[in-house]
Amino acid sequence: MAFNLAYDGNSYPIEEEVSVLDTLLNQGIDIPHSCKSGVCQSCLVEVVVGEPTEASQVGLKATFKARNYALSCCLFAKEDLGIRPLNSEDAEVTASIIKVEALNHNVLRLCLKPEEEFDTIPGQYINLITPDNIVRSYSIANIPGVDGYIELHIRVIPNGRLGSWLLNEAKPWGSVKLRGPAGECFYVSDKEGGDDFPMVLAGTSTGLAPLYGIIKDALAHGHIGEIALFHGALQPEDLYLVDELYDLSQQQSNFSYTPCVLNGSEGDFYICGDVQQLVVEHIAKLKEARLYLCGAPDLVNAMKKKAFLSGVASKHIYYDAFLPSK
């Protein structure tokens, strides 16, 4: 029996015993692939019509499963299917600016209200497109489904193109476009009634944004395991949301907040030292912890490797390295 396979605006017949990958390859469509055995994960696609089968998601990270990703070489049609390549361009939506406020000397909080449905998961990132067509990626720092708006934290580089737009033109009720979302660094709940795995979240600068989104999402899901946040900065004034995060740690007994400053002075409200070292020491004490890393790529990559070498399972490391715009 044959079903229909929708891909890139076309529909192709698909036989039950021929994989999605082979069906598309037979049509002359170039889909990246390698082992054709469900191992190398190079043929990942997103299923947008129908459901991925269990066999097509063996070995995938929980966040990949949650986004309906599937291994096209192991995906056989049991119904009509629609797929698309990962990171394909999504439609743009218009959003209004509802708030712009300073969080510290160089970070702004920008709150945006999309004018149409725009599904996101806290921790993912979106593209922000200004009226002058400047495009930058920012992470979601809140639960848009609950708050009714999307909160972004933006580090302002005064002479940068986006920085001057933010400082001079971004005003409430102005409008921007959004595209996305993308990214696999977010919270996934495994069981009803609250998960108990320990979570360690670490980031620098506005790497705090996705981490804070993930923390709010975990707490909203009733997460009962430990949630430890480490926010690293070069100077004390680079930290932000300090009072808010300390307050949250008072209200939530399973949440702890550790700000740390590399060039700080002892005896202040933060810990003096290297965030990398603190995180690796902390996680070495935990069992089956999940690690979430966001911020400067050098730091994210170094921490990822150190944590992995100290015993954290690779599938439990979620990260988002912020690349500078070029």
């Binding site: 390698s34 082992c35 055995s37 191992v39 190398c40 994960q41 190079s42 070995g59 990559n301 990822k304 490797k305 992995f308 690779s314």
Partner: peptide, 11 residues
């Protein structure tokens, strides 16, 4: 690229 390398080790 740790993910890419892990996928290769797995293969």
């Amino acid at each position: 690229d740790m993910e890419g390398q892990i996928a290769k080790q797995k293969a």
